[in-house]
Each structure stands twice: as C-alpha cells, then as structure tokens.
C-alpha cells in the first residue's frame, strides 16, 4: 500500500494560550497523530515542520500554512502553536474538534543535536514552538540553555512546560530599551557557545540576522530556522528560496528550514 505523506486528519483540540484580546490570539492546535505505524511520523525530529490546510479553507485562502512541529506523538497528537496574524490563521483559530484538515509532513530537515555539547536555544516569539520537543528530548543528554525573547505575555507561549525541564529564561520586550537590552544579552551569551557549542535559533528574521551576526563575530555559527512564505512546502514551487552562498537560491521548505548562518545570506 502506498504511504501518502499527505493525509486527512481531524482536529483533536484547539487550546487558547494566554488571555487573548489586545495581547494577540495564540493557540495550540492538536491534530490526529497519523500513527506509530507511519514511519515518517515515528521518526520526526524537532525543527521539521508540517503543512496544514483545513477543509474550511475551501478555495480561499488557497494555500496550506507551514508550522514548526511543537510535538507529535500518540498521546498529544500532532501539535503546532500559532498566533493569529492573517486570513489563514484566523480560519485555523475557528477550528473545532472533529473538523477535517489536510496535513502533509513531517517536512524539511531538523535542528542538529549533539549530545554532550553545550547547546544554546534562542527563540523569538512564536519561534519557541520547535524547541518544546527539543528540550524534552535533549535536556538530559545535553547542557541546554534556552533564552526566549517575547512581547506578548509569557502565558501566550508553551514556556512553563519547558522551564520545568531545562534552564530557560524569558525576556519580555515592552519598550525599545528592552530590545537593546535583549540584543546586549545575546551578545554576551552567544560567544560563550562559540566555536564549540551548538547554537540553534528560531524567530523573526531580524532576530535571526542578529543571532547569525553575533555568532559569526565570535568565530562560531548558528543554525537558523527560516520561515519564508511557502506555497507547496515540498520544494516544487520555488517560492520560498533563500540565498545559499555555495548553491544559490535553495528552497527553504525542502533544503531547510534549518540552515547554518555562515552558509546563507539573509
């Protein structure tokens, strides 16, 4: 029997994170886990992503939406965290248990894991999502530290669960001075992991640029998870490319989403 990596699954639950309202609407969406028998899902790794397209999209919005996999197992289902930012996420926020969703994945590469190596996780905003499972899998084997920058309240993110497992610190930005302080903190922390530690980052593009620059200045490099706009998610449309210094434009979906900071031009 052919194992189609695109499946129709149903919504298990949609949980609001935080209080919503003016702080922004954040959710964790849990979909049916395609099953332990699905070897691709049994082998997924943090940093990979999934394309989600609810049946309720009809023909508009047209394209599925990519999300980092926050966790995926029999107990929790396939979970993604998202903030409502446009038409697609607004429709995702209206899903109810039992609704049908097309889901294809797990897609893309994954973050590196080096047991024993000091590992620094840098997350900006909803970019914290892929680190939830990363912390779970690697907190005992590695010397892990997570530095999280965010604007909305901390309860909009799955932070508490991670803080119970590893050294996690959160820094909230409420004014421009906070941002400067956060960048200064990155400037202090990142060199401590260069060149021998492992630095992984996920978040907004300016944040990733800063992480890549600081790591480079300290003689190291970081793995950056990019989130370019995508149509297909599988390397066919070439809509999401990033500039690789050696190979030219590469699909973020198929050749990433995780790239070494010294190999790409952001």
């Amino acid at each position: 029997m052919f194992a189609n990596a695109c499946q129709d699954v149903t919504v298990r639950r949609l949980t609001r994170l935080g209080a919503g309202g003016a702080q922004g609407d954040f959710f964790e969406l849990a979909l049916d886990f395609p099953g332990a028998g699905d070897t691709a899902w049994a082998r997924w790794r943090p940093g990979q992503f999934v394309m989600i397209r609810p049946e309720s999209f009809g023909l508009d919005p047209l394209m599925g939406r990519p999300f980092s996999i926050a966790r995926a197992d029999e107990e929790h289902g396939v979970c993604v965290c998202f903030q409502v930012v446009g038409r697609g996420t607004a429709k995702l926020a209206a899903l109810e248990p039992g609704d049908r969703v097309a889901m294809w994945g797990p897609l893309g590469n994954a973050f590196a894991a080096r047991p024993g190596a000091p590992t620094l996780l840098l997350a900006g905003g909803i970019g914290i999502a892929p680190f939830l499972e990363y912390v779970k899998r690697h907190s005992s084997a590695a010397d892990l530290r997570l530095v999280f920058g965010h604007r909305p309240p901390l309860d909009c993110y799955p932070f508490a669960e991670m803080a119970a497992l590893a050294a996690c610190e959160a820094h909230r930005e409420t004014c421009p001075e906070d941002l400067h302080a956060f960048i200064a903190l990155l400037g202090e922390v990142i060199p401590q992991y260069c060149p021998d530690g492992l630095i992984l980052a996920c978040g907004p593009l300016p944040f990733l640029r800063t992480v890549g620059r600081l790591a480079g200045e300290a003689g190291g490099r970081a793995q950056l998870s990019l989130e370019n706009r995508m149509a297909c998610g599988i390397g066919a449309c070439l809509g999401c490319v990033t500039e690789h210094k050696e190979h030219g434009p590469l699909s973020v979906c198929a050749r990433g989403p995780v790239f070494w900071s010294d190999e790409i031009t952001l």
Binding site: L62, R229, G239, V241
Partner: peptide, 17 residues
C-alpha cells in the same frame, strides 16, 4: 537563478508568482 524574493503572494482563490 530566478527572481529575487518575495516571489509569491496569495490572492483571492489564487496566487501570484
């Protein structure tokens, strides 16, 4: 090499590339 980014935009029931 193709064009610079961004290369795609979603439009009502369609997309531009």
């Amino acid at each position: 090499r193709g064009n610079p980014m961004p290369r795609i935009a979603e439009t009502p029931a369609g997309m531009l590339n």
